[in-house]
């Protein structure tokens, strides 16, 4: 295992871990606006790490440039997309869940 292999695999495995955490976060978070955190932030970093791991493994070819371009584009596009969604949701009047205590949560869901 050469050095660049090790570094590439570290990037890959940490990226895969983050991607898993991101998708679990999208399911488990209590409210829509908290889910946009999981989607906008966690996914972006996870994908960027995996793509950079691939780019390191490719090493010096044209594909590396394309992979880095995709990683940069996702770093810009993903948060923008989730921001647009959250803005549209907020304008339509979906209220963020501010308190986490059980009974207030029920009232929020009730009304």
């Amino acid at each position: 295992m050469a050095l660049h292999d090790i570094i590439g695999s570290i990037f890959l495995l940490s990226g895969a871990f983050l991607v898993l955490i991101g998708s679990i976060g999208v399911v488990r978070f209590p409210d829509f606006f908290t889910r946009t955190h999981a989607s906008g932030k966690c996914d972006t970093l996870g994908l960027a790490l995996v793509l950079l791991g691939l780019a390191i493994h490719e090493g010096g070819t044209l594909n590396t440039v394309k992979l880095i371009l995709i990683a940069v584009f996702i770093g810009i596009a993903n948060p923008t997309a989730t921001h647009a969604l959250a803005r549209a949701a907020f304008k339509l009047g979906i209220k963020p869940l501010l308190s986490t205590s059980k009974e207030e949560k029920q009232n929020d869901l009730a009304d």
Binding site: V19, R35, T36, S39, D43, L47, V50, L54, L85
Partner: peptide, 21 residues
């Protein structure tokens, strides 16, 4: 809400990017 569904499909979309590569 419908936004959760779009968010979920957006998340799946971004993940397929890396899966394809």
């Amino acid at each position: 809400t419908v936004y959760d569904r779009i968010l979920g499909s957006g998340v799946i979309g971004t993940k397929t990017i890396v899966l394809i590569s």
